[in-house]
Design a binder for these strands. Structure first.
Lengths: 248, 248
DNA sequence: CTGTGGATTTGATATAGGTCAAGGATTCCC
DNA sequence: GGGAATCCTTGACCTATATCAAATCCACAG
């Protein structure tokens, strides 16, 4: 995969609590060439922590394949995941050099990285990139706030349905399809990782998944392979507005 | 208060779930003059909804005095507040013209507004402003994610203590002081508004405030006037890291 | 095939916080 | 002063979810 491909894939997936992406979908060829010169790839295994909260971060990066989480941990071990990163999502914050969260690969993961300093210099020369970054950050903020509603007010069943809807939507986006009708995808998270994202325990996650299965909202093959017979039914279970959020 | 004063006051209050502010603390005098030409003031009464989710927003604005909330409401009425706006905080998103949340004045409120189109034109001419806006948006994102930890993992008592710590810190910032030792301030929120922000019911909020009072963590005079004998004790009750978050 | 360890499910029980209901305090208005 | 509205507190009880404890499943090493 070339940088050009990474940067030009910019699916906008909706109101998910998930980062959107592509650094600059409109930038000039010569700028892409410049980016190309400062890029490198890194791969990680499922379960690996790529970055620890407080670490110095001297690069920014895009997810090429796989899924990662952004996670906060309290002193006594209570854990809350605050973001999910799918392919095309972006990590890193120009102008800040400490990572505020643990970044953990939940599946095998390939990242396309750019050294931070040259990236920032390029940003300074290229207004489009800064604009795009503001755009992306606003999307992330909307996603975080949508998740605040989920964490503060939704029931366990609604939380699970919401998460499944988002994973289904992002997976559909990877295949350049709109999420509708029947969806089939693999869960990129363990029950525990789902619990950490939803503010639940893994037992509750397991029970609610069983309940959704019993009620025919989803079908399961093994523990990770999910079939959603009707995406709209799933959205109703999620308690969202009809279209699944502000972005449709 | 002049625009210059509004724009140049940029307290950075820490890891609160609260927006920070000042559009551009470093911009040139002539740019301030340009901003001055497109500003206007609006005032609102406590309880008034300034903006409804879905409304067209043709301005951006800074809080001059008072407090407002950003609030999401589900179809069945469940309500979650996703942001608190104190003086110097910013509302509005260049490049987007629909408001995603209700904005509600919780006290009498004065806003300093700028018409959006000229503001955006100015942003395009002045890289500092765009940079500052990205900076502010990243702060908001951090605050939102800190709040996700609160909503997903903290107990009711910790939630209340966290909110009191944040209000105390922002209030101290208004007086250009560091929060420490004894703090005295007024709560700008009803019990119900606190509940909506913390993902609780108003009864639970009331009970936990009574408990913190009983345990000497706070003192109350009337329902709104709070004395915190020792800010560090409050932070411990909040379950945060010693210094109260990433920003100190 | 067999043991081992992680991930998951399921059951029994406990509890934090929600719900429903009643009553106080404060303010405002007449 | 006397409603009456709003906001807040407190009590009694209930329930969704957490906690603790076994099973079960499955992948993988030997």
């Amino acid at each position: 995969m070339t940088v050009l491909e990474v940067l030009h894939s910019a699916p906008n997936c909706g109101s998910c609590p998930i980062r959107h992406n592509a650094v600059c979908a409109r930038c000039e060829t010569e700028e892409l060439a410049a980016l190309d010169a400062i890029k490198f790839y890194r791969s990680f295994e499922a379960g690996q922590t790529l970055i620890w909260a407080g670490d110095r971060m001297d690069f920014v990066a895009s997810v090429v394949s796989g899924v990662a989480t952004l996670t906060q941990v309290m002193e006594d071990g209570r854990t809350q995941t605050v973001g999910l990163l799918f392919p095309s999502d972006f990590v890193g914050r120009p102008g800040r050099d400490r990572a505020p969260y643990n970044v953990i690969a939940t599946t095998d993961l390939l990242m396309c990285c750019f050294r931070k300093k040259p990236f920032e210099e390029m940003m300074a020369r290229t207004p489009h990139i800064g604009q795009r970054l503001l755009e992306m950050t606003l999307d992330e903020l909307d996603a975080a706030r949508e998740w605040m509603l989920l964490l503060g007010r939704k029931t366990a069943r609604e939380k699970i349905a919401s998460l499944l809807a988002i994973v289904g939507r992002r997976d559909a986006a990877l295949h350049l399809r709109k999420p509708q009708g029947k969806l089939v995808f693999d869960l990129p998270l363990t029950r525990e990782a789902m619990a950490d994202y939803l503010g639940l325990t893994l037992e509750t996650v397991s029970r609610q998944i069983s309940a959704l299965k019993r009620d025919g909202v989803i079908e399961l093959e093994g523990k990770r392979h999910v079939t959603v017979p009707d995406y709209n039914v799933l959205l109703e279970e999620a308690g969202d507005d009809a279209d699944g959020g502000f972005f449709g």
